[in-house]
């Protein structure tokens, strides 16, 4: 997974805009483009990590395309591009985020980056649940004495702590829209089949020699995400 660039699909009916967005994104991402709904559906598959979708395209509406993307690429994050600032209700409708026109470069790159960070966070957070519930089972089944002597338990504790630090680092600033979208995903059970970023969820005690390498990846992804506040105003 590591070296491969994430894929972004840009769906926009104005060719000059497609060109600009693609140019901004090309440095860091694999870019696909589509001018309308049916072209978008030709381009979508589970390789696509993020889709930017103009809500009011001629022919097929953004909402229809969204439903189709959810069907074919459940792990894909979709940001709506719109002329009017929407409220949180668009999140309930199934979009993950939005961009208001005119879209500026920094805003576009930041949105894509945050959507990718969110996928990462959700994967880690599912792993956290499985480790915590395993620890709880041990806590309920064993005596305090047994727990304090258990090497297995100590390792589990260490993994949980490590994971919590990773989770905090994955999304240090969570905004309201992101919060609502994440709860929506949890409630709908979406993303539960999405593979977590690291291999061995089921066995927390397996050798994890790749941990350091993974941290490196995340740091690399995190660059440029420093200023997220104040963007709203």
């Amino acid at each position: 997974m590591g070296s491969e660039q994430p894929t972004v699909l840009v769906v926009e009916d104005e060719p000059p805009l497609i060109e600009i967005y693609a140019r901004w994104l090309e440095g860091e991402y694999e870019v696909r483009t589509a001018q309308n709904g049916s072209e978008a559906l030709e381009q979508i598959d589970d390789e696509v990590d993020v889709a930017l979708l103009d809500r009011l395209m001629p022919g097929m509406s953004g909402d229809e395309v969204l439903a189709e993307i959810r069907e074919r690429a459940p792990g894909c994050r979709v940001a709506m591009v719109t002329a009017v600032e929407p409220d949180f209700d668009i999140i309930r409708m199934g979009f993950d985020d939005y961009l208001t026109k005119p879209v500026e470069k920094e805003m576009l790159l930041e949105t894509v980056e945050r959507l990718l960070a969110r996928s990462n966070y959700e994967g880690l957070e599912q792993e956290l649940y499985s480790l915590v519930s395993k620890r709880s089972a041990l806590q309920s089944a064993k005596s305090a004495q047994e727990i304090s002597n258990s090497e297995e338990y100590a390792e589990l504790e260490a993994r949980i702590e490590e994971l919590q630090a990773d989770i905090d680092a994955a999304m240090p600033e969570m905004e309201s829209g992101e919060f609502v979208a994440m709860v929506r995903d949890i409630e709908s059970g979406a993303g539960e089949d999405v593979e977590p970023p690291e291999g061995d969820v089921s066995d927390p005690f397996a050798e994890d020699s790749d941990a350091a390498e993974d941290d490196g990846d995340r740091d690399a992804d995190g660059e440029g995400s420093a200023s997220t506040e104040g963007e709203d105003r």
Binding site: Q126, Y129, S133, M174
Partner: peptide, 14 residues
């Protein structure tokens, strides 16, 4: 429990 845990985790992160 799983849903509640994940919800509360995201909520406390927010």
């Amino acid at each position: 429990v799983r849903t509640a845990f994940r919800f509360l985790h995201v909520f406390t992160s927010r």
